[in-house]
């Protein structure tokens, strides 16, 4: 009697496991709204930025940028924007007068970032961006300096 009841229960349990293991990821993605942060960073060898509004990039970002094969010794934060993006939606974020990004969440941890310079599309990057990792886009700037847009997940 007991074995019969348990026999039915494990069949039911197995069906539940199948349903959960296949449906759970869908549920996470479906309701997922990612909270991201984008920082516009200026890289230079100057000790101080001529713009008083600039402040040194946070230590964690500086450390990671310094781990990259660049020659710059100092990084200043020009702007920082926090934003959310729902799965399948695109959020356009203005980083500066000339720089904008459009971020689209493709589900899971994958985002698609389109970079605009002076309103023109520079490129599109599709990248898995789990928490704790950085997606850095950059390019040369005048006077042997560089610009960076650093994107990361913040929750």
């Amino acid at each position: 009697m007991i074995a019969s009841v348990f026999g039915k229960l494990w069949v039911l349990g197995a069906l539940v496991v199948i349903a959960v293991s296949t449906a759970a990821p869908q549920a996470v993605y479906a309701g997922g709204e990612r909270k991201l942060e984008a920082q516009l960073i200026w890289g230079t060898n100057e000790a101080e930025s001529p713009d008083p509004n600039h402040k040194p990039a946070e230590p964690e970002v500086q450390r990671k940028l310094r781990s990259l094969p660049f020659k710059w010794t100092n990084y200043f934060e020009v702007n920082r924007v926090q934003f959310t993006v729902a799965q399948g939606r695109t959020n356009r974020v203005v980083m500066s007068k000339e720089c904008e990004i459009a971020v689209r969440s493709l589900g899971d941890t994958v985002i698609e970032v389109t970079l605009f310079g002076k309103g023109e599309r520079v490129g599109t990057i599709t990248q898995a961006l789990p928490k704790g990792e950085l997606l850095v886009t950059g390019g040369n700037a005048p006077n042997f300096t560089a610009w960076f847009v650093v994107i990361r997940q913040i929750d």
Binding site: S67, G123, I125, T126, E133, L135, T137, G138, G139, W147
Partner: peptide
Amino acid sequence: VVVAVADPGAVTYRDHASGVTLVWFSYPAQ
């Protein structure tokens, strides 16, 4: 990293240790 760029000179670099992905454009910011 999937990069679709208008800039053919773009370079992608991945540092697994620090969890940083870099896409370097030759886009000349001013």
